[in-house]
Design a protein around this nucleic acid. Structure first.
Lengths: 201, 201
DNA sequence: CCCCTTGGATAGTGTCGGTATCCAATATTG
DNA sequence: CAATATTGGATACCGACACTATCCAAGGGG
């Protein structure tokens, strides 16, 4: 199909598709001449993925490009791809360099094995600092119960990753991690409402 | 204290404080003359809260203003305040009006009681739609396990809300909901890493 | 043959947080 | 009391970002 058809089927304006092509979020179509290219189902899928990453996923164009490059790179192992990509996932804003000692202590208590350079470590430290800066106290037993729930979630997710193909595994792990986050947030808010109704009504 | 001291102690530039005052995120200080006002500890706390909402909380200035108005409004019940405020919390982007029938079916299966008009309901439907639009399948048993974990989280949170003062309860419920989200996201990513290491290494 | 679409480049738009500047009124200090 | 500094308030400006519009020459289809 040509770009106008790609625009029509994906629901994304031609000008925006050109922008995505320019930014490297969508691979170029197969050129049939200097001013013509054809696009296939793969491009349609890719555009849908890009829209999901930029919209609900909350990624900027620059971060989405890096994530997609990682997903596309066949040389990386699943672990490496996950680590590289997760560094691009949106975390708490700011470029502070928080003290992660307390966080690493928690992880040790839970028996979690993670890369000490992981950006999620920093994200957690920043998130906890922001919580306390806003005037709340993060109690250890509260955090421990949260960690236990998170451990269950992580186990579910990793069990879900297909083991047969590297590309499929990376794609599922990276994109799944990101796009399930809004699902989890919405579920938690609904669960809070249910619990609040039971307690206060 | 005067505005320059407020700026110094909070670490926020004077120009930005003026911006927050203009936008109604921070209440005006007590005017002592036409060109002078004094600020107290309450303002310092408020500025810290605003920074947390705008930064890690991910709220826009406009949404933060509504959330703060709700928290400040003594006439609302805890449930009403939670509902009003949670409508301002950042959900998946976009202004689509998704079909929530499937989501309400899930809730019924889980036995959750929530306001059918809740924005979180819409957020969940949008998040699930985005996940599927990106080419993934959301299996019922996967979602069920996520819901079970979310239920545990919601119960923890609501048990945490102080029952003695309305203002404290609303503040804790609204702000706590929001600021714990980045903590949960970071915990999940760390848990995934741990689980991935155990599976793939 | 001739108009239409295309790829490619470039410039413009709207929003949004945040800054910078200016001003007259008022404190503070010597 | 006078010189200097600070303030509140208004307004203009800024840079980042995700598009969006325009223009152009080169093909392609009828």
């Amino acid at each position: 199909m040509r770009i106008s058809q790609l625009a029509e089927r994906s629901g994304v304006p031609v000008a925006t598709l050109k922008y995505y092509l320019r930014e490297g979020l969508v691979p170029p179509g197969e050129a049939t001449s200097a001013t013509q290219a054809v696009y296939g189902q793969e491009h349609l899928d890719r555009v849908a993925l890009v829209r999901a990453l930029l919209g609900p996923g909350g990624l900027s164009v620059a971060r989405a490009r890096v994530v997609l490059e990682v997903v596309d790179d066949d040389r990386l192992t699943v672990i490496d791809a996950l680590a590289t990509a997760s560094a691009q996932l949106p975390g708490p804003a700011g470029d502070e360099q928080p003290d992660t000692a307390a966080v690493r202590e928690h992880l040790e208590r839970w028996g979690w094995v993670v890369d000490p350079a992981s950006p999620a470590l920093r994200d957690l430290a920043v998130a906890l600092a922001a919580f306390e800066a806003a005037g709340f106290e993060m109690r250890t037993d509260y955090l421990d119960r949260y960690a236990e729930a998170a451990r269950a979630l992580g186990a579910i997710d990793v069990a879900e990753v297909p083991g047969d193909s590297r590309a499929g595994a990376v794609r599922h792990a990276v994109i799944g991690t990101l796009l399930v986050e809004p699902v989890l947030i919405a579920l938690r808010r609904l669960a809070q409402q249910d619990a609040a109704v039971r307690r206060f009504c």
